[in-house]
Lab assay of single mutants.
Amino acid sequence: MDTYKLILNGKTLKGETTTEAVDAATAEKVFKHAANEHGVHGHWTYDPETKTFTVTE
Protein backbone atom coordinates (compact mmCIF):
# COMPACT_ATOMS: atom_id res chain seq x y z
CA MET A 1 0.00 0.00 0.00
CA ASP A 2 1.05 3.56 -0.68
CA THR A 3 0.09 6.87 0.92
CA TYR A 4 -1.81 9.33 -1.27
CA LYS A 5 -2.53 12.96 -0.45
CA LEU A 6 -5.52 15.17 -1.24
CA ILE A 7 -5.37 18.96 -1.28
CA LEU A 8 -8.78 20.64 -1.10
CA ASN A 9 -8.99 24.15 -2.56
CA GLY A 10 -12.71 24.68 -2.15
CA LYS A 11 -14.53 27.99 -2.02
CA THR A 12 -15.54 27.37 1.59
CA LEU A 13 -13.38 24.40 2.58
CA LYS A 14 -9.61 24.15 2.33
CA GLY A 15 -7.35 21.49 3.75
CA GLU A 16 -5.30 18.36 3.25
CA THR A 17 -5.76 14.70 4.07
CA THR A 18 -4.09 11.39 3.27
CA THR A 19 -5.20 7.82 2.70
CA GLU A 20 -3.52 4.46 2.30
CA ALA A 21 -4.52 2.69 -0.91
CA VAL A 22 -3.35 -0.10 -3.20
CA ASP A 23 -3.29 2.23 -6.22
CA ALA A 24 -4.12 5.75 -7.42
CA ALA A 25 -7.53 4.75 -8.78
CA THR A 26 -8.60 3.46 -5.37
CA ALA A 27 -7.30 6.58 -3.63
CA GLU A 28 -9.15 8.76 -6.15
CA LYS A 29 -12.45 7.02 -5.36
CA VAL A 30 -11.92 7.56 -1.62
CA PHE A 31 -10.97 11.22 -2.09
CA LYS A 32 -13.83 12.01 -4.50
CA HIS A 33 -16.32 10.49 -2.08
CA ALA A 34 -14.89 12.57 0.79
CA ALA A 35 -14.92 15.76 -1.29
CA ASN A 36 -18.52 15.17 -2.36
CA GLU A 37 -19.52 14.55 1.27
CA HIS A 38 -18.11 18.00 2.10
CA GLY A 39 -19.74 19.69 -0.91
CA VAL A 40 -16.46 20.32 -2.74
CA HIS A 41 -16.85 19.95 -6.51
CA GLY A 42 -14.33 21.20 -9.01
CA HIS A 43 -11.39 20.47 -11.27
CA TRP A 44 -9.29 17.46 -10.27
CA THR A 45 -5.60 16.96 -11.00
CA TYR A 46 -3.16 14.22 -10.02
CA ASP A 47 0.63 14.36 -9.73
CA PRO A 48 1.99 10.80 -9.90
CA GLU A 49 5.46 11.83 -8.72
CA THR A 50 4.14 13.07 -5.37
CA LYS A 51 0.99 10.90 -5.33
CA THR A 52 -1.05 14.05 -4.72
CA PHE A 53 -4.58 14.79 -5.86
CA THR A 54 -5.80 18.39 -5.91
CA VAL A 55 -9.39 19.56 -6.30
CA THR A 56 -9.98 23.25 -7.01
CA GLU A 57 -13.35 24.99 -7.10
Rank of each mutant, 00 (worst) to 15 (best):
K14Y: 14
T50N: 10
K29N: 08
F31Y: 01
T56H: 07
V30W: 12
T19I: 15
G15W: 15
Y4I: 02
L6V: 04
G15F: 15
T50G: 05
V30M: 10
T50R: 06
F53H: 01
M1Q: 09
A25R: 09
T54K: 05
E49Q: 11
E20D: 10
T17Q: 14
L8C: 14
T12W: 14
A34I: 15
A35Q: 03
T19F: 12
A21M: 02
H41I: 13
E16V: 14
V40Y: 06
L8E: 02
K32P: 01
F53V: 01
G39H: 06
A25P: 08
E20H: 09
T19A: 07
G10I: 09
K29W: 08
T50V: 06
E37N: 09
E16Y: 14
N9C: 15
G10E: 03
H38T: 08
V55H: 01
F31P: 01
I7D: 03
M1D: 06
A35M: 14
D23H: 03
F31N: 00
T50P: 01
T17R: 12
P48D: 09
T45N: 09
Y46Q: 00
G42P: 01
L13A: 09
G42T: 02
K5N: 05
H33G: 09
G15M: 15
D2L: 10
D47F: 05
H41V: 14
Y46M: 01
W44G: 00
E16K: 07
E37K: 12
F53G: 00
A25C: 13
F53P: 00
Y4G: 03
W44I: 03
D2F: 13
A35V: 10
K29Y: 08
A34T: 14
T52V: 07
L13T: 11
W44K: 00
H38S: 12
K5T: 15
A25N: 08
K51L: 11
V22I: 13
Y4H: 03
H38R: 14
D2H: 14
G39N: 10
D47I: 05
P48E: 11
G10W: 06
A34Y: 15
V55F: 04
K11Q: 11
L8A: 04
K5D: 03
T3A: 05
D2P: 07
L8G: 02
T3V: 13
E49Y: 10
T45H: 11
L8S: 03
H41F: 14
H33I: 14
V55C: 04
V40L: 10
V30P: 00
N9W: 11
I7C: 06
T56R: 05
E57Y: 05
T50C: 05
G15I: 15
T45P: 00
K14F: 11
G10S: 08
T17M: 15
A27H: 00
T45D: 12
T45R: 07
A27N: 00
T54C: 07
T45V: 08
G39C: 06
D2A: 12
L13S: 09
V30N: 06
T50M: 06
K11L: 15
E28Q: 08
T45S: 13
